[in-house]
């Protein structure tokens, strides 16, 4: 495959756009360093998941349509969010399945899986001498199958680990509960604030107990939640999106 000819659409989820522009920038830079022709359609907004997860799938249809309109012309759509990508792939089934819709559902990829599965590489020549804890975001892990969830009795693998393991100097810290949900869960975080915060606190404690300095994930939403708790509790723990780590390379 000649990568140079690939037309890549960059989808930056709404909360990353508004609150974490550096994650969008890292993603864009990384894809460009990998030699790709990346486009960022300015009319994009959101995948619609916040609405649908709250039960308002119908209200989300115009949002879905906007996404399809913006992205159907690309060979691949890449996004630094497992959760949004999962939503597009899994839940755009309620749209009429036109060629455009089918294309978008098939060609939208989470950043790590795009690098591993489509670009077929895992060595990004990164140096990252830190103690890193990986938070396995549920939609990426169980939805997109970026790795083997701990519940399943199948051969173990993880695209995120594969990419990070290649980083020079990195120490990936093992956790007591390798893939428990952080409790963000989209609007769950505000409909069930007490449980959500408790889940987040417990995840953080696992990372802290095991000596993590930097916590990373494929989803900034989980990290926003975890970081919000860490800051409230005045923990000295940094949350860094995986795109930022992968972009710290010398390609």
């Amino acid at each position: 495959m000649n990568l140079k000819n690939l037309h890549i659409g960059l989808f930056i989820p709404c909360y990353i756009d508004q609150f974490y522009p550096q994650v969008g920038i890292a993603t864009l830079e990384l894809l460009q360093k990998l030699g790709l022709d990346v486009h960022y359609p300015l009319e994009q907004t959101c995948c619609g998941q916040p609405l649908a997860n709250s039960g308002s799938e119908k209200e989300a249809i115009p949002v879905y349509k906007n996404f399809v309109e913006n992205f159907s012309r690309f060979d691949y759509v890449v996004s630094p969010s497992g959760s949004c990508v999962y939503h597009v792939r899994e839940h755009y089934n309620i749209l009429e399945q036109t060629d455009e819709v089918e294309r978008v559902r098939k060609n939208t990829f989470e950043l790590c899986e795009f690098i591993v599965d489509i670009l077929k590489t895992d060595d990004l020549k990164i140096e990252y001498p830190h103690k890193v804890g990986i938070h396995q975001s549920c939609h990426g892990l169980r939805g997109l199958k970026l790795g083997t969830p701990s519940e399943l009795v199948t051969e173990r693998s993880s695209k995120v680990h594969r990419l990070l393991k290649k980083a020079k100097g990195i120490e990936i810290i093992g956790l007591d509960r390798e893939d428990e949900c952080c409790g963000f869960g989209g609007t769950f975080s505000v409909f069930e604030p007490d449980v959500s915060v408790k889940m987040g606190k417990d995840r953080l404690e696992d990372h802290l107990r095991n000596g993590v300095e930097i916590i990373t994930a494929t989803d900034m939403s989980c990290l926003m939640h975890l970081e919000g708790i860490a800051r409230r509790q005045k923990h000295n723990l940094k949350a860094v999106h995986i795109a930022e780590i992968l972009n710290s390379n010398r390609l």
């Binding site: 930056i12 522009p21 486009h39 300015l42 915060v197 708790i229 409230r232």
Partner: peptide, 30 residues
């Protein structure tokens, strides 16, 4: 309710889109 046990994210001076428009004049778009 978010603020019950969590801080809100620190707010950047511009969104990704604003940054992109600034740095990629004339690129992107519909």
């Amino acid at each position: 309710v978010w603020g019950k046990g969590r801080e809100l994210p620190e707010i950047p001076k511009e969104s990704f889109k604003q940054w992109y428009k600034k740095t990629h004049q004339g690129k992107g778009g519909k």
